[in-house]
Amino acid sequence: MMELVCPAGTPASLRAAVDAGAHTVYCGFADDTNARNFPGLNFSRPEMAEGIAYAHARGARVLVAINTFPRAGDEATWHRAVADASTAGADAVILADLGLIAHAAEAHPGLRLHLSVQAAAANADMINFYAATFGVKRVVLPRVLSVQEIAAINREIDVESEVFVFGGLCVMTEGRCSLSSYITGRSPNMNGVCSPASHVTYTEEDDELAARLGGYTIHRSAKSEAAPYPTLCKGCFKVGPRTGYVFEDPASLDASELLPALAKAGVCALKIEGRQRSRAYVAQVVRNFRNAVEALEAGQPMPAGMLAGLTEGQSATAGAYNKIWR
């Protein structure tokens, strides 16, 4: 059966995900070592150990994401996170930074290493390099590849591949984007945040609601409409005489209909984005995806409309998995 890798922003979400049928849960420490460094989210050291024990007791695995790029002069914070994840019994750590991967491979030879989507390993040569150099066992593929390209990569690599199937969608190659720090001073790579809420303002002007990020207008919507969160690559902008969603609509990823194709492409694990989401949301998405992978395993059709109502009241897209998206 394809492995379901599910998000947990809190210990309660971890338990909810495990109880709902997650094979694997991923989470991070409550600091800037992980790429969902949001207020009130993530795990203390004791919470991590308890969460891992809870999952292990129920046959589930826990991966610890330490997938920001360590600050110069402060690498010890990231090294400590790797050591503490190992001590807590993590089944693997998810890393992006070359230096941190080199450190983990050397200092923790028994620890399983997964290559984060933030490492942007988008072809077999780079993936094989990480496998040969550091013994990386799994790669989370960047969201720039079509299903066909994923299949071709899997034919040329010996490590496992994991792909995102549901939740937030990055339009840019992750780990290679500094749009957020350009506008707000805080970025996914350095701070574990994109378009941070601390820099968002909503202002009523005439009959419209202006959503701004760092003072830059990302959307204007009629007061009667739902205003999307001003993620900067999903805004409405002007280019020449035209106005529109230059980079991407305010859409989220839903590749649930592609599960059979992804299985055929040799993908071994399916990742659900959303460590910032509620426990109830996580439980429902996990339950639905668990039903889907079980149906797939049994050779039955996918449950139809299984995720309706969960795509943030927004449109959903299969992103780059369909080549036409590009």
Partner: peptide
């Protein structure tokens, strides 16, 4: 980093601004 994978062992090279060199370890 794909380019790194193709360089022969011991060959010298330059690292451009699109490589994530954020810290001393890297």
């Amino acid at each position: 980093l794909t380019a790194l994978a193709h360089l022969p062992d011991g060959a010298q090279f330059s690292v451009g601004p699109l490589i994530n060199v954020y810290n001393e370890g890297t």
